[in-house]
Design a protein around this nucleic acid. Sequence first.
DNA 1: CGAAGGGCTATACGGTTATGTAATCGACTG
DNA 2: CAGTCGATTACATAACCGTATAGCCCTTCG
Lengths: 236, 236
Amino acid sequence: MTHPVGGPAFEDLTARARIRDAALRLFAERGIEGATIRDIAKEAGVSSGLVRHHFGSKHALRDACDAYMLERLMRIKEDAVLKGGMADPGMLLNLHPTVLLGYRYFARAMVDGSPGAASTFDDMVRLTQEWLAANDKDHVTADPQGYAAVLVAMQSGLLVMHDHVSRALGADILGPEGNLRLIGAIVDFYSHALLSPELAAQAHAALDQLRAQQPPTAAEPGSAGEGAGDDRGDSR
Amino acid sequence: MTHPVGGPAFEDLTARARIRDAALRLFAERGIEGATIRDIAKEAGVSSGLVRHHFGSKHALRDACDAYMLERLMRIKEDAVLKGGMADPGMLLNLHPTVLLGYRYFARAMVDGSPGAASTFDDMVRLTQEWLAANDKDHVTADPQGYAAVLVAMQSGLLVMHDHVSRALGADILGPEGNLRLIGAIVDFYSHALLSPELAAQAHAALDQLRAQQPPTAAEPGSAGEGAGDDRGDSR
DNA sequence: CGAAGGGCTATACGGTTATGTAATCGACTG
DNA sequence: CAGTCGATTACATAACCGTATAGCCCTTCG
């Protein structure tokens, strides 16, 4: 049993809240398949039957976690999202345990089939489109929806990859030192274009050509003589 | 049992290859916890004992999948990575089933504790740093490692979020129509800076100040009077 | 021919899982 | 006081899991 998610002391929480918090932690760490009801119950200091009593089923527990964490994060994030869209690098600079757990939880939930994570993604794409509509004076894109989806996916994806990034930087990006460094790198990344306008124009022209043709053929590169030895004669 | 990953017909593959291919598909779709040996065996048209015979254990099977798919993708991608680093948007434009499955597989593996995926990430960060060293004439960053980690994480993270992006765009981004559209959006994204130099300078100044101070305090925003009602009096 | 080895199946084993259920306890109300 | 309700535990159930194993069949080689 570990420390609570900010707020009241562990002993002061209802069993229901302790279960939910334990679930948030373990779902974030192991995903919904890897986290078991028994482990969640143990971490909450209750029996597994009580998990069932309060939440009914594992998926319902996950849905309750989605809803709870969404509501908490929305309260914190609402202003930032409405004001800056997803482009605001400062929005990551919040190291409160609840927020950090929320990041971890939703990062994992994004790939675990969570309905709450999916709807969060869709909401953020929509909000980013709205932000673009209000702010895109330079006409950076002819496809605001696609652009918004890419922006949201990359920003979310960065969090999903947090373990790897932390390893690469040698510090937890969801901790003080690593987070400052991460934000510095994000600022550099967002403040420079990676492609010149000329290359971009060429790429768009090529894409337009491809659209006018058949879709790219599915020939496997280097497929001549490849694979047969690997897939047929492979012996143990 | 579905079609093979390009190459020979299903019946022409050894059982070992069929098992490996089935594992790649199911691991990509469900993760290592969600995909069972029995389902993999069934999809490969063999008994579960044969999976054990050929691969020993589930984790060894996953390691074999890592190694196989890495080798296959490296062969395809080696030139592209060495030439353009991770900045080349055209590198996604490859719709061969093996490559697409590799994207799906590694996207999932990135969050499933796969050693192969982790080392792939680290390799790509290193390669991107080398590319920066050779190409960064504009001095876009004082922290090449951080920048490279962010760039790789965002690009990889975009793939990890492929289900969500596909839903937002209304087409599979790992299919012909969605992929073209995705690349168009990526081109737009990479060809424009999202932050002005002024804002970036301000952000860096603020980050330097924060580094000189204590790390950000962990006060919860809006914590006054919050949480007690939720966590104590919550009744079912 | 027999022996060896590889491919393969069917089944067993021990453990774990989510879900279901009966019983107990304490607090509250009429 | 008895009854009700909510919180909680302990245990049961059916299904599933990864791993282990014995045995059969076929091919190759000496």
